[in-house]
Design a protein around this nucleic acid. Sequence first.
DNA 1: AAGATCCACAACCGCCCTGTG
DNA 2: GCACAGGGCGGTTGTGGATCT
Length: 353
Amino acid sequence: MGRAPCCDKANVKKGPWSPEEDAKLKAYIEEHGTGGNWIALPQKIGLKRCGKSCRLRWLNYLRPNIKHGGFSEEEDNIICSLYISIGSRWSIIAAQLPGRTDNDIKNYWNTRLKKKLLGKQRKELNARRLHGLKQEMKKGSGNFMVSESRSSNQNPCWSEMPMPAVPMPYPSNQDPHLSDHASIRKLLIKLGAGGRFSDGHQQPINDDEGMNLQCPLDTSSTQQQLYENSIDLLPSPCPMNSVITSNTCQLTEAQYDMDVANMHLLQGGLNSFPVELNETIYNNNFPQRLEGLEFLYGGGMVNDSTGTSSAESSSWCDISSLVYPPLVANCEGRDPAMLQECPFEESRYMVPQ
DNA sequence: AAGATCCACAACCGCCCTGTG
DNA sequence: GCACAGGGCGGTTGTGGATCT
C-alpha cells in the first residue's frame, strides 16, 4: 500500500517561487515561526504550495544569514575533508559551514568540486600511464598484465594494475573507479598527497612516493586500537568495510584484489598526506572544534588543536585512522556498547542547526 | 545572429526515520 | 506492535543564463 501524499498535488503550485510567495512565507515565519507543522503552514498563509516545498524554500533560501555561491578555498577543503570522512552527509557538512545549506553544498560538490577533482584525476592517470608506458618500453616489454604480487594479495602495486598500453581518456561517468563515494574518497586522498584540493596548488606527483607501499602509520597496538575504534565509529558510507572484511566479503576474488590493492595504494599515499589540509583542520584555519563532530576529538581519535603541539602531528594519521580502516577491520565481535554509541548514526538527527 | 550545448542552481521526488495514537 | 503523519535527507530533474559553434 502506497503512502498518502503529503498534499493535494493537483492544487499545489510547482516551479520557481515568486517574490510575493517568498514575502508571504518569510513574513509569516518571522512573526509566528513554523508552528512545528509545515504541512499546515501553506494553507494558513494562503500559499498553494506543498508544505515540504515551503520548508525547503525557507531553509535553503529565505532563512536569515544564508550565503550563496562564492565558496572559499577553505570551505572547499572543509567540504573535501568531511566528504572523505563521512561521505555525502550534506547536512552534517553544512552544519560545519555557517550560512551554507546542505542543498548549496550538495550542488556545489556535484557541479564544481567533483569535476575539479575528476579533472585532476584524469591528468594524473594519463601522466601515470605515459610514465608506465615509457618504463615498459625501456624494459622492452609490452606486458602490462597482472603480476604475481597482485594475485597473491602481497604488495599489490598500482603500476602493475592492468592498464591500456595507450592513454585512453574516457568520460568521467565511464570511469569505473570514480563512480561512487569510495572511489572519490580514494581520489581525494591521492590528490591530497599533491597539496591542496584547489587549483594552482598541486605539486607534481612523485611516482615513487605514490607507489610506496609501506604503511606510514604507527602500527603499534595503540594505533591498531584506534583503527579498530574507527571501524566502530564509522558506519562507512562506502562499502569499504565489506571489501576488507574477509569473512563477510561478497565480492569476487578479482574485485577483492583490486580493492585491497587500492587500499595499499591509499595507505602508501598517506605518507605525504596533506599537511595543509591537516593544518586547516587543526590550526587557525579551523578556529573552533567542529560542531556536531566532537566525537572526532574525544577518546584519542583526533588531537584537539588546543591540546597538542604541531610536533605531535601524527594528527593526520590520527584522522586517517577514521578515514582508512585497517585491513583487519571486522565489526563482528565488537563491544555492542560502542556500536550503539556510534555518533555518526546519531548525528544524522542531532546536527545542531 | 541563431541554434546547440554547457553549466549552475533551485526545486522536486521518493525514501527513511521518528513520534504519536 | 502496528499504522500513519510529518520532518529530514540525499539524489535527481528542470530551468534559465552563459558560452560555443
